[in-house]
């Protein structure tokens, strides 16, 4: 059975097993992707009757000239650069600390995992209060250091920072759990061997922990980059359905959302989605290329 040669019959059988999942994937993933690619070339479109009157590339020329789209790309990049490296570093540090604490480690793991399983809207509501300029916890702590209250959510200067802080906090839990799994998978023998070989704690970290953890680090960062490029719900919930004060937190997906749901410009929305798709693809390819050299499986 195990080394059976594929025949027409066995292939058909295998396809039958795959069919339920395949149907769902095609309907809800593959078809929408193809459709949005096609839709990005609709320049005149009657969506009531689903009739395309005109095709062309003008949607792309529009967004490339639209200052709002430029702002959205810039904000998205700031968000990705602000969130991903810090998330990776902070979650690795916390995972390392948690790995050392045997006492109550189960409790800590649960506590850190909570943000991941809690709804973004609920989290945003709590952070809304933390960020409140008059009564917020954050400003209260800053006042202890003699810093004047900051209008986190109302000032265009701080809105992006507020969003980044909340997003880092939200994504820590899942990444910590991933790192903990990675740390647990490193055989204690390697540390013993390294100690025998004369490696102190820091050298053990750089020569054993980091290289052997690199597959997880790679996973966490690719995941983080993709997730951060697609940021939307945190913005919507934190700024009460606006892209932040004076569009200071307008990202590509938020731009797409506005074009699609508020302005009914389907072609433009689809075109911005296509641009986002290729941006993510490019960055992921760069990460994959980098991982070939630096990730050790």
């Amino acid at each position: 059975m195990l080394n059976e040669k594929p025949t027409l019959k066995s292939t058909a059988k295998a396809l039958l097993y795959l069919l339920p999942m395949l149907v769902i994937t095609i309907i809800f993933n593959i078809y929408p992707i193809l459709k949005s690619f096609i839709m990005s070339f609709y320049t005149k479109y009657d969506f009531f009757k689903d009739i395309v009157q005109q095709w062309g590339g003008s949607n792309f020329t529009f967004i490339f000239r639209d200052p709002d789209f430029h702002l959205a790309v810039k904000n998205t990049l700031i968000f990705v650069v602000g969130v991903v490296p810090l998330t990776v570093i902070i979650s690795l540090v916390i995972a390392l600390l948690l790995n050392k604490i045997k006492w109550l480690s189960g409790l800590f793991r649960t506590v850190y995992f909570l943000p991941f399983v809690t709804s973004t809207v609920a989290i945003a509501q709590v952070w809304h209060w933390i960020y409140n300029s008059d009564y917020g916890l954050l400003n209260y702590f800053l006042s202890l250091f003699g810093i004047n209250p900051i209008a986190w959510l109302e000032s265009p200067k701080y809105a992006m920072l507020a969003l980044i802080i909340m997003s880092i906090w939200k994504s820590l839990g899942f990444n910590i759990v991933l790192f903990l799994v990675g740390l647990n998978n490193i055989n204690e023998r390697y540390y013993q061997a390294a100690e025998i070989d004369g490696a102190n704690a820091w050298h053990q970290f750089t020569n054993v922990t980091l290289p052997l953890l690199s597959p997880i680090t790679f996973l966490v960062s690719v995941n983080g980059v993709i997730g951060s490029f697609k940021v939307f719900d945190q913005i919507f919930a934190l700024f009460n359905g606006t892209p932040g004060p004076s569009k200071s937190a307008l990202t590509i997906v938020y731009y797409l959302y506005q074009k699609f749901y508020t302005e009914w410009k389907y072609g433009i929305a689809a075109a911005s989605g296509v641009v986002l798709f290729f941006m993510i693809l490019l960055v992921t390819l760069i990460q994959m290329w980098y991982s070939k050299k630096h990730v050790h499986y």
Partner: peptide, 14 residues
Amino acid sequence: KVGMVFQNYALYPH
């Protein structure tokens, strides 16, 4: 500063 060979060798895989 002793030298040691472990049962499963513990060579650094990377």
